[in-house]
Design a protein around this nucleic acid. Structure first.
Lengths: 237, 237
DNA sequence: TCCATCTCCTTAATGCCTCTAAGTTATCTT
DNA sequence: AAGATAACTTAGAGGCATTAAGGAGATGGA
């Protein structure tokens, strides 16, 4: 066998794939989600329609692949911002990750919106799907510093026995799913923070707050202060 | 003139219009948002394609009209739940409206999702659009009891001078927009509550919390307790 | 070196979609 | 009764997703 050729062929394929992803993204950003069609993307990269089926099983798969890119890029940005802070400064690291999330979301509105409102319904949450895994990695960036925080300076948590049984069970299940790095009651705090943060960005990007706000930055900062409070952080960041 | 005939013709038109709305909704619920096409809707009501253009300028307008229906029905349900409580029980009235919102959202997932993730991007927030007005009425159902609450038993508010100037300006602007029925600092509390409540439902319906929760009812109830706290409500409801 | 094979791409074709145009029929209006 | 209007039809252009069939060139074994 000639690994030389095989390698080259593979490299070309990867380059084409990257071009396709870039073209799809360009179309999304410049012309909206409806413009991301197989044909348009193909045109953009100089192929004709059906050629894309050598790279994706269909439109849905293309969308999923691009969505996974976005998750990854977002997670990467957050991770970078987080890791730009000193390893010991857990507070700063967590806040930096949060702020990086909003910065990415607002500077990449189309992409961020695409993440949770892509034209594919219902959202593909199958375990094992590329998108699901990318989403997991994204959540992970938050989870990690919170776990560290929990281990070095535990934040206040509710008493498990005060929570409704149904909620308790779900917290236990998720705690198990993440490898029990957090006990259920700490999972509860983590998820509450996540919901407030991500929910706010979700509404912002979907224009659900335009009726009252033109700039959500101070609202986001206030949300961060709330979370810092809940986690016992020093939020002078 | 024969108002008799004119009235009849108009009645028939309204009936057809209602049939169209119903068909679009049926398609949305049973086959997802992508199935709501002009052609499919027309087929459903027994007309052929272009006939629908006598009722809507195009696909986008049809979508907007159906979306407005949903806003209206949701607002109606909330209002009904609210008004089923005694006029004096502001706490119960507010909580009832919130719970009705979630009940409608979860029993009409497709419709609720359609409200903020309809295939039309960017969301149509033009003042004067049917959808914008419907949205306003929807928010109104919340605003009203909060205004009453504010007038009869003011809830704690932040000091305006503690807020960043940009936020202050936006709160002032929105306060003015709603006719100054709430001062800016009370608007801040109102909007914070709204964001948490609506944001949670938004994430639930868009499947953004499936990774951890299968039933968000207890999470929603906890959120309600937080809001009740913030508003000084009696939340034994 | 030759030839089978595989990869990547093409065109053709089906059937769906949106939307416009033109024509028909039934229903007002006067 | 005659003209106007509303509601609908079919025809058709142009785009999209997807499948099928085929061609050109690189790969790789003989």
């Amino acid at each position: 066998m000639t690994p030389q050729s095989a390698r080259r062929r593979d490299r070309v394929r990867q380059e084409t794939l990257a071009e396709i992803h870039a073209a799809a993204r360009r179309l999304l950003v410049t012309q909206g989600s409806a413009a991301v069609t197989i044909n348009a993307v193909a045109r953009e990269v100089g192929m004709s329609g059906p050629a894309l089926y050598h790279y994706f099983a269909g439109h849905e798969e293309l969308v999923a692949a691009v969505t996974a890119d976005f998750y990854q890029e977002l997670a990467e940005q957050m991770r970078a911002a987080r890791d730009a802070q000193p390893p010991g400064a857990l507070d700063l690291r967590l806040l930096a990750a949060c702020r990086a999330m909003r910065v990415w979301a607002t500077t990449h509105r189309a992409e961020f919106g695409w993440i949770f409102a892509s034209p594919i319904a219902p959202p593909d949450r199958r375990s094992g799907s590329t998108r699901h895994e990318a989403g997991q990695r994204f959540e992970q960036v938050f989870l990690e510093p919170i776990v560290q925080l929990w281990q070095t300076r535990p934040f206040p948590v509710p008493d498990l026995s005060d929570l409704p049984p149904s909620l308790r069970d779900q917290l236990r299940a998720y705690s198990a799913e993440i490898g029990a790095v957090l006990p259920p009651e700490a999972v509860h705090v983590f998820l509450s923070c996540w919901i407030r943060l991500y929910g706010l960005l979700c509404m912002e990007v979907l224009h659900q707050l335009d009726f009252a706000f033109s700039d959500l930055e101070p609202v986001f900062e206030e949300c961060l202060r709330d979370l810092a409070d809940a986690l016992g952080l020093d939020d002078r960041g």
